[in-house]
């Protein structure tokens, strides 16, 4: 559960994630453009990614949570941050959000074709099934991830959907991991200790 103290400022949070609050709060559903302008809204429609955030403004403490999942706070210092929109619990009002197309990635996790991109300076709160684990990627140490355990990533990373023959034949056949994500470059990948539904057969 995430406790956010507000002193007249505004945050954005996942629709329906308010569990309790004291003080005075107002909740506002974001307009169709979701603070991203018309272009952002059009991209979302095409991408099938619903606008899932609401605005919370007020004085007091608001408690946010969803499905008893864990909350991880990620400080952003100008780097780009990518997260499944369903895993985005809350963010500072001054952070910008946009849509990023990621090709097959989304299909693997049953989330549609796009991911939310967050930019700016501030804090993002992400949800994961069990506490998220942050794993660093460097050019010397690429990382392979089960698509169903993927939550978010940041930095300059190249993401490849790998249908490694060895991995696929061994783990695949509809029940396990038939593909893996391979990350190369400089950045951090967040994984959760559980698997989301959705199977990608390539």
């Amino acid at each position: 559960m995430l406790a956010v103290e507000l002193a007249g400022d505004t945050i954005r949070a996942l629709n329906g994630s308010m569990v309790a609050y004291d003080g005075r709060m107002t909740f506002k559903r974001q307009g169709i453009s979701g603070g991203e302008g018309l272009r952002g809204a059009l991209k979302r429609r095409i991408a099938g990614e619903g606008m899932t955030l609401m605005e919370i403004t007020g004085q007091g403490t608001v408690y946010l949570a969803s499905e008893a999942t864990e909350v991880t706070l990620v400080p952003l210092n100008g780097e780009a941050f990518f997260v499944e929109s369903e895993s985005l619990l809350a963010l500072d009002g001054r952070l910008r959000t946009g849509v990023q197309f990621v090709g097959l990635r989304g299909m693997g996790t049953g989330q549609g074709l796009a991911t939310t991109k967050v930019e700016g300076h501030g804090t993002v709160a992400i949800l994961s099934d069990g506490p998220a684990i942050a794993l660093e990627v460097t050019p010397q140490t690429p990382l392979s991830v089960d698509p169903h355990a993927y939550v978010a990533h940041s930095g300059q990373l190249r993401q490849d959907v790998v249908t490694d023959v060895n991995w696929r034949t061994v783990l695949g056949q509809g029940s396990g991991e038939s593909v893996q994500f391979r990350y190369q470059g400089h950045g951090v990948v967040y994984v959760q200790p559980a698997e989301r539904g959705g199977i990608l057969e390539v």
Partner: peptide
């Protein structure tokens, strides 16, 4: 905001007085 596309927080339970409320981090 209650009609159709609400924020999901349309109704709230207000507790006033002296006591304790138990809340779970899930819907």
């Amino acid at each position: 905001d209650l009609i159709g596309r609400g924020s999901g927080e349309a109704f709230q339970l207000q507790l006033v007085g002296d006591g304790v409320v138990y809340v779970q981090p899930s819907e």
